[in-house]
């Protein structure tokens, strides 16, 4: 038997604790990432196979060809994230501060999640149908032209993303608002702050970690989403996720698909870092807690 001194054992212990997580990350994250990086630098075709030859031009080709879809992904995701924030903040605020039925309201937010993502999205096809009541109503009040439609438009795609990711924004917001010590707000009002000033100087800054976490949880998956564009939009609304999906599964152009995935990852990473910089890294830690 291996005999280790107490000190050695003590110093090895943290690694033992890290072990399972580390193994998981290596097998399911690091290895796939590396192999995709390897694939992204290959050229060839599906029949003869692809060969690795440091083909960095795959990246520039992919970027120049699918710039529009990239721009669309980030645009749609950004608009949807802002919409989620505008809708969720009053909602979370109400539940955290005013409601007596917190559990029921929280359940109602989570309830749609009991249904499959796809089924939820396909249900919107029915709601927004050309002969449906939503379209008829909007046409009657003049918000939509007589031959206008909702389905297969940009509006439908952004609305779909907003709807599908709303809980990701609402729940972290609720948690951070709930955590706020009410006495701080009382103290502010005692010191002659108006309700608005107390909100601006106390509540909002303390809710920042929630806003930060909620925005990330909404924005990151929304950028890569392809279900909403596929079911509620048309090819003119396709996002980068649709391109990657079809490159992998339909045209079997693995290098381009892998390259696009990497570019997407790096751009999201850069965006998140900028965002963290703007809001302060302390919020990142707070959000993690």
């Amino acid at each position: 038997m291996l005999r280790l001194s107490l000190r050695t054992r003590r110093s090895l212990f943290p690694y033992l604790l890290l072990g399972p997580g580390l193994l998981w990350l290596i097998v399911f994250y690091l290895i796939p990432i590396l192999s995709q990086g390897y694939v992204s630098l290959q050229t060839g075709n599906i029949e003869q196979g692809y060969t690795f030859n440091w083909a960095f031009h795959v990246y520039s080709d992919a970027l120049s060809e699918y710039g529009a879809q990239f721009a669309r992904s980030f645009g749609y995701a950004a608009v949807a994230t802002v919409l989620c924030l505008i809708i969720s903040f009053p909602l979370a605020y109400y539940i955290a501060f005013k409601s007596r039925h917190k559990n029921i309201l929280l359940l109602l937010i989570v309830l749609p999640f009991f249904t499959n993502y796809l089924v939820r999205t396909i249900a919107w096809q029915t709601i927004l149908a050309d002969d449906g009541w939503v379209v008829h109503f909007l046409q009657n009040v003049g918000l939509l032209s007589h031959d206008g439609r909702l389905l297969a438009t940009r509006t439908a795609v952004i609305a779909g993303i907003t709807y599908n990711f709303l809980p990701f924004m609402a729940l972290p917001l609720y948690v951070s608002l709930e955590k706020i010590d009410r006495r701080l707000i009382e103290a502010a009002t005692d010191l002659y702050a108006s309700r608005a000033t107390a909100f601006r100087k106390v509540t909002l800054p303390l809710a920042l970690p929630g806003i930060f976490a909620g925005s990330l949880l909404t924005f990151i998956p929304a950028v890569g989403d392809f279900i909403n564009a596929q079911f509620l939009g048309t090819s003119r609304q396709y996002m980068i996720g649709n391109v990657i999906q079809s490159k992998f599964l339909v045209i079997a152009d693995y290098p381009t698909a892998a390259a696009l995935s990497f570019v997407l990852m790096f751009v999201i990473l850069a965006a998140v870092l900028l965002y963290a910089r703007a809001l302060g890294t302390r919020n990142l830690q707070d959000a993690a807690i």
Binding site: Q48, G49, Y254
Partner: peptide, 24 residues
């Protein structure tokens, strides 16, 4: 009607198979 669900599952297979880059 359920195509995309299948796609997301099967994509895992395609992704894995894409990793090797075997010569034809």
């Amino acid at each position: 009607r359920l195509g995309a669900a299948g796609l997301t599952f099967s994509s895992a297979g395609a992704l894995l198979s894409a990793c090797g880059g075997v010569k034809g």
